[in-house]
């Protein structure tokens, strides 16, 4: 059933967010630390594990694949609701700080990729 896939996905997300919130409280900050990342790890773990022990079934998988496939359109909607106006209103300091940070971060990708990748 398609709903099994969607439910499994939703379950992973909720567990991840709860753990992320708890992690934040534990350290003493009002922020979710890696909740979505934890949810992803949980889904990866479950899907790797479930595949070995019993088959999730193609129709159940469809409930997950749909959301994965609709990802780009959701990102387009996300882009359309950004505060672009506010970003440009920040003036030169904001532009410079953000721009240099992105530029230097890009430069570091090849360096870090090489690190320990022999």
């Amino acid at each position: 059933m398609v709903i099994y896939g969607v439910a499994l996905l939703a379950f992973c997300m909720l567990v991840g967010i709860i753990l992320g919130e708890l992690l934040g409280r534990l350290i003493g900050i009002e922020a979710n630390i890696g909740g979505i990342g934890i949810a992803m790890l949980l889904l990866i773990f479950l899907s790797n594990y479930l595949k070995k022990s019993f088959n999730l079934g193609e129709i159940t998988e469809r409930g997950i694949h749909f959301w994965s496939a609709i990802y780009i359109p959701i990102v387009v909607a996300m882009a359309a609701k950004q505060n672009v106006m506010g970003a440009l209103d920040g003036g030169f300091i904001a532009l410079l700080a953000g721009g240099i940070a992105v530029f230097l971060s890009f430069l570091l990708i090849p360096l870090l990729s090489k690190l320990g990748n022999k």
Binding site: L9, I36, H65, I74, V75, V76, M78, K81
Partner: peptide
């Protein structure tokens, strides 16, 4: 549609596989 809830749901889904 572009809010954090739906976006994060789809991001988690991409982890499948």
């Amino acid at each position: 549609l572009g809010g954090a809830m739906i976006r994060d749901f789809a991001i988690v889904a991409t982890a499948y596989g």
